[in-house]
Amino acid sequence: MKAIFKREFKSYFTSPMGFIIIAIMTFFLSQIFANLFNVNYGNIAYAFVYMNTYAMLIAPIITMKLFSEEKRQKSDQLLFTSPVKIWKIVAGKFLAAFCLFMLGYSITIVFNIIFALVTDVNWLLYLSCVLGAALVGASIISIGVFISSTTESQIISAVFSMIVSLFLLMIDYFSNIFNNAVVTGVCNFVSFTSRFNSFASGIIDFSNIIFFLSVTALFLFLTTRSIERKRWA
Protein backbone atom coordinates (compact mmCIF):
# COMPACT_ATOMS: atom_id res chain seq x y z
CA MET A 1 0.00 0.00 0.00
CA LYS A 2 2.81 2.35 0.92
CA ALA A 3 4.71 1.55 -2.25
CA ILE A 4 1.66 2.20 -4.40
CA PHE A 5 0.84 5.42 -2.58
CA LYS A 6 4.41 6.61 -2.98
CA ARG A 7 4.56 5.79 -6.67
CA GLU A 8 1.16 7.23 -7.42
CA PHE A 9 1.74 10.45 -5.54
CA LYS A 10 5.13 10.90 -7.11
CA SER A 11 3.73 10.28 -10.57
CA TYR A 12 1.42 13.27 -10.15
CA PHE A 13 4.52 15.40 -9.95
CA THR A 14 6.58 13.73 -12.64
CA SER A 15 3.85 14.78 -15.03
CA PRO A 16 2.34 18.27 -15.16
CA MET A 17 -0.89 16.89 -13.68
CA GLY A 18 -0.13 17.51 -10.01
CA PHE A 19 1.13 21.02 -10.61
CA ILE A 20 -1.84 21.88 -12.79
CA ILE A 21 -4.31 20.64 -10.20
CA ILE A 22 -2.65 22.60 -7.42
CA ALA A 23 -2.36 25.66 -9.63
CA ILE A 24 -6.04 25.55 -10.58
CA MET A 25 -7.18 25.06 -7.01
CA THR A 26 -4.89 27.81 -5.77
CA PHE A 27 -6.15 30.08 -8.51
CA PHE A 28 -9.80 29.62 -7.58
CA LEU A 29 -9.09 29.87 -3.87
CA SER A 30 -7.06 33.03 -4.35
CA GLN A 31 -9.78 34.64 -6.38
CA ILE A 32 -12.37 33.81 -3.76
CA PHE A 33 -10.02 35.01 -1.07
CA ALA A 34 -9.39 38.29 -2.86
CA ASN A 35 -13.13 38.90 -3.08
CA LEU A 36 -13.59 38.04 0.57
CA PHE A 37 -10.78 40.29 1.56
CA ASN A 38 -12.20 43.21 -0.43
CA VAL A 39 -15.67 42.98 1.04
CA ASN A 40 -14.08 42.45 4.41
CA TYR A 41 -15.89 39.34 5.45
CA GLY A 42 -12.87 38.06 7.20
CA ASN A 43 -14.33 34.60 7.30
CA ILE A 44 -12.40 31.78 5.63
CA ALA A 45 -15.46 29.51 5.75
CA TYR A 46 -16.95 31.29 2.73
CA ALA A 47 -13.86 30.42 0.73
CA PHE A 48 -14.51 26.76 1.48
CA VAL A 49 -18.17 27.02 0.59
CA TYR A 50 -17.46 28.53 -2.80
CA MET A 51 -14.46 26.32 -3.40
CA ASN A 52 -16.45 23.18 -2.70
CA THR A 53 -18.25 23.49 -6.04
CA TYR A 54 -15.02 23.87 -7.98
CA ALA A 55 -13.33 21.13 -6.01
CA MET A 56 -16.03 18.64 -6.86
CA LEU A 57 -15.39 19.32 -10.53
CA ILE A 58 -11.62 19.18 -10.19
CA ALA A 59 -11.52 15.88 -8.32
CA PRO A 60 -12.46 13.82 -11.42
CA ILE A 61 -9.33 15.09 -13.13
CA ILE A 62 -7.25 13.81 -10.25
CA THR A 63 -8.83 10.39 -10.30
CA MET A 64 -9.31 9.86 -14.01
CA LYS A 65 -6.03 8.10 -14.67
CA LEU A 66 -5.76 6.00 -11.53
CA PHE A 67 -6.91 2.66 -12.86
CA SER A 68 -7.80 3.41 -16.47
CA GLU A 69 -4.24 4.30 -17.40
CA GLU A 70 -2.89 1.19 -15.71
CA LYS A 71 -5.29 -0.89 -17.67
CA ARG A 72 -4.41 0.77 -20.92
CA GLN A 73 -0.70 0.30 -20.40
CA LYS A 74 -1.26 -3.18 -18.96
CA SER A 75 0.80 -2.26 -15.94
CA ASP A 76 -2.11 -3.46 -13.84
CA GLN A 77 -0.73 -6.93 -14.54
CA LEU A 78 2.16 -6.08 -12.29
CA LEU A 79 -0.05 -4.84 -9.48
CA PHE A 80 -2.53 -7.67 -9.55
CA THR A 81 0.08 -10.39 -9.86
CA SER A 82 2.17 -9.12 -6.97
CA PRO A 83 1.52 -10.43 -3.48
CA VAL A 84 -0.62 -7.48 -2.42
CA LYS A 85 -4.30 -7.53 -1.55
CA ILE A 86 -6.47 -5.69 -4.00
CA TRP A 87 -8.01 -3.44 -1.38
CA LYS A 88 -4.53 -2.26 -0.46
CA ILE A 89 -3.85 -1.31 -4.06
CA VAL A 90 -7.13 0.59 -4.17
CA ALA A 91 -6.40 2.26 -0.85
CA GLY A 92 -2.92 3.30 -1.96
CA LYS A 93 -4.25 4.94 -5.08
CA PHE A 94 -7.13 6.55 -3.26
CA LEU A 95 -4.81 8.04 -0.66
CA ALA A 96 -2.49 9.45 -3.30
CA ALA A 97 -5.36 11.21 -5.04
CA PHE A 98 -6.76 12.37 -1.72
CA CYS A 99 -3.44 13.84 -0.62
CA LEU A 100 -3.08 15.76 -3.86
CA PHE A 101 -6.61 17.07 -3.42
CA MET A 102 -5.88 18.27 0.11
CA LEU A 103 -2.61 19.77 -1.04
CA GLY A 104 -4.69 21.95 -3.33
CA TYR A 105 -6.42 23.32 -0.25
CA SER A 106 -3.16 23.97 1.57
CA ILE A 107 -3.02 27.58 0.40
CA THR A 108 -5.96 28.32 2.71
CA ILE A 109 -3.58 28.15 5.67
CA VAL A 110 -1.74 31.12 4.22
CA PHE A 111 -5.00 32.96 3.68
CA ASN A 112 -6.11 32.27 7.19
CA ILE A 113 -2.83 33.56 8.55
CA ILE A 114 -3.33 36.74 6.54
CA PHE A 115 -6.83 37.03 7.99
CA ALA A 116 -5.36 36.46 11.42
CA LEU A 117 -3.15 39.49 10.93
CA VAL A 118 -6.06 41.82 10.26
CA THR A 119 -8.91 40.35 12.23
CA ASP A 120 -9.88 37.71 14.74
CA VAL A 121 -9.86 34.21 13.27
CA ASN A 122 -11.76 31.25 14.54
CA TRP A 123 -9.27 28.43 14.01
CA LEU A 124 -11.75 25.82 15.15
CA LEU A 125 -14.12 26.92 12.40
CA TYR A 126 -11.22 26.62 9.98
CA LEU A 127 -10.53 23.08 11.14
CA SER A 128 -14.20 22.23 10.78
CA CYS A 129 -14.08 23.54 7.21
CA VAL A 130 -10.97 21.50 6.44
CA LEU A 131 -12.62 18.41 7.87
CA GLY A 132 -15.68 19.05 5.71
CA ALA A 133 -13.60 19.60 2.60
CA ALA A 134 -11.63 16.45 3.33
CA LEU A 135 -14.76 14.38 3.75
CA VAL A 136 -16.38 15.69 0.59
CA GLY A 137 -13.08 15.19 -1.20
CA ALA A 138 -12.74 11.62 0.03
CA SER A 139 -16.27 10.80 -1.13
CA ILE A 140 -15.96 12.34 -4.55
CA ILE A 141 -12.50 10.84 -5.08
CA SER A 142 -13.70 7.38 -4.12
CA ILE A 143 -16.46 7.73 -6.70
CA GLY A 144 -13.85 8.83 -9.24
CA VAL A 145 -11.61 5.88 -8.36
CA PHE A 146 -14.52 3.54 -8.89
CA ILE A 147 -15.39 5.02 -12.27
CA SER A 148 -11.75 4.92 -13.27
CA SER A 149 -11.64 1.22 -12.51
CA THR A 150 -14.48 0.52 -14.92
CA THR A 151 -12.95 1.95 -18.07
CA GLU A 152 -9.71 1.97 -20.02
CA SER A 153 -10.08 5.53 -21.17
CA GLN A 154 -9.06 8.47 -19.02
CA ILE A 155 -11.43 10.75 -20.88
CA ILE A 156 -14.46 8.56 -20.33
CA SER A 157 -13.46 8.21 -16.71
CA ALA A 158 -13.15 11.98 -16.26
CA VAL A 159 -16.37 12.77 -18.10
CA PHE A 160 -18.43 10.26 -16.16
CA SER A 161 -17.01 11.39 -12.84
CA MET A 162 -17.80 14.99 -13.72
CA ILE A 163 -21.34 14.06 -14.63
CA VAL A 164 -21.71 12.45 -11.22
CA SER A 165 -20.24 15.55 -9.57
CA LEU A 166 -22.58 17.84 -11.49
CA PHE A 167 -25.49 15.67 -10.55
CA LEU A 168 -24.52 15.85 -6.90
CA LEU A 169 -24.17 19.62 -7.13
CA MET A 170 -27.52 20.03 -8.82
CA ILE A 171 -29.40 17.73 -6.51
CA ASP A 172 -30.29 20.64 -4.23
CA TYR A 173 -32.14 22.30 -7.12
CA PHE A 174 -34.01 19.09 -7.80
CA SER A 175 -35.37 19.10 -4.30
CA ASN A 176 -36.77 22.56 -4.95
CA ILE A 177 -38.19 21.71 -8.35
CA PHE A 178 -40.05 18.60 -7.31
CA ASN A 179 -42.50 19.48 -4.62
CA ASN A 180 -42.65 15.97 -3.34
CA ALA A 181 -41.80 14.93 0.19
CA VAL A 182 -40.06 11.73 -0.85
CA VAL A 183 -37.93 13.34 -3.57
CA THR A 184 -37.01 16.21 -1.29
CA GLY A 185 -36.11 13.79 1.45
CA VAL A 186 -33.89 11.73 -0.81
CA CYS A 187 -32.26 14.81 -2.31
CA ASN A 188 -31.53 16.29 1.05
CA PHE A 189 -30.11 13.02 2.23
CA VAL A 190 -27.79 12.64 -0.76
CA SER A 191 -26.81 16.31 -1.10
CA PHE A 192 -23.11 16.81 -0.52
CA THR A 193 -23.38 20.60 -0.43
CA SER A 194 -25.93 20.93 2.33
CA ARG A 195 -23.97 18.49 4.45
CA PHE A 196 -20.77 20.36 3.69
CA ASN A 197 -22.37 23.68 4.53
CA SER A 198 -23.06 22.49 8.02
CA PHE A 199 -19.31 21.94 8.47
CA ALA A 200 -18.68 25.39 7.04
CA SER A 201 -20.97 26.92 9.61
CA GLY A 202 -19.00 25.20 12.32
CA ILE A 203 -21.41 22.40 13.11
CA ILE A 204 -19.69 19.02 13.23
CA ASP A 205 -22.55 16.61 12.93
CA PHE A 206 -21.62 12.97 13.34
CA SER A 207 -24.32 11.84 10.96
CA ASN A 208 -22.59 13.90 8.26
CA ILE A 209 -19.19 12.45 9.07
CA ILE A 210 -20.61 8.96 8.94
CA PHE A 211 -22.43 9.70 5.70
CA PHE A 212 -19.26 10.80 3.91
CA LEU A 213 -17.16 8.02 5.37
CA SER A 214 -19.79 5.46 4.31
CA VAL A 215 -19.88 6.83 0.78
CA THR A 216 -16.09 6.63 0.62
CA ALA A 217 -15.99 3.12 2.00
CA LEU A 218 -18.82 1.99 -0.27
CA PHE A 219 -17.16 3.19 -3.46
CA LEU A 220 -13.74 1.89 -2.50
CA PHE A 221 -15.37 -1.44 -1.84
CA LEU A 222 -17.14 -1.28 -5.18
CA THR A 223 -13.78 -0.56 -6.81
CA THR A 224 -12.25 -3.72 -5.40
CA ARG A 225 -15.31 -5.64 -6.53
CA SER A 226 -15.10 -4.14 -9.99
CA ILE A 227 -11.47 -5.21 -10.26
CA GLU A 228 -12.28 -8.66 -8.93
CA ARG A 229 -15.16 -8.98 -11.32
CA LYS A 230 -12.84 -8.46 -14.25
CA ARG A 231 -10.77 -11.37 -13.12
CA TRP A 232 -13.82 -13.58 -13.13
CA ALA A 233 -15.30 -12.34 -16.37
Binding site: A3, K6, R7, S75, L78, L79
Partner: peptide, 19 residues
Amino acid sequence: PLYVDMTVREYLEFCFDLK
Protein backbone atom coordinates in the same frame (compact mmCIF):
# COMPACT_ATOMS: atom_id res chain seq x y z
CA PRO B 1 4.05 -3.95 -17.23
CA LEU B 2 6.12 -0.79 -17.09
CA TYR B 3 5.40 2.68 -15.83
CA VAL B 4 6.78 4.82 -18.58
CA ASP B 5 7.04 7.92 -16.44
CA MET B 6 9.58 6.36 -14.09
CA THR B 7 13.27 5.70 -14.46
CA VAL B 8 14.42 2.11 -14.55
CA ARG B 9 15.86 2.38 -11.08
CA GLU B 10 12.72 3.95 -9.62
CA TYR B 11 10.61 1.33 -11.28
CA LEU B 12 12.65 -1.55 -9.92
CA GLU B 13 12.65 -0.01 -6.48
CA PHE B 14 8.89 0.28 -6.70
CA CYS B 15 8.63 -3.39 -7.67
CA PHE B 16 10.91 -4.27 -4.79
CA ASP B 17 8.65 -2.46 -2.33
CA LEU B 18 5.54 -3.82 -3.94
CA LYS B 19 6.71 -7.41 -3.70
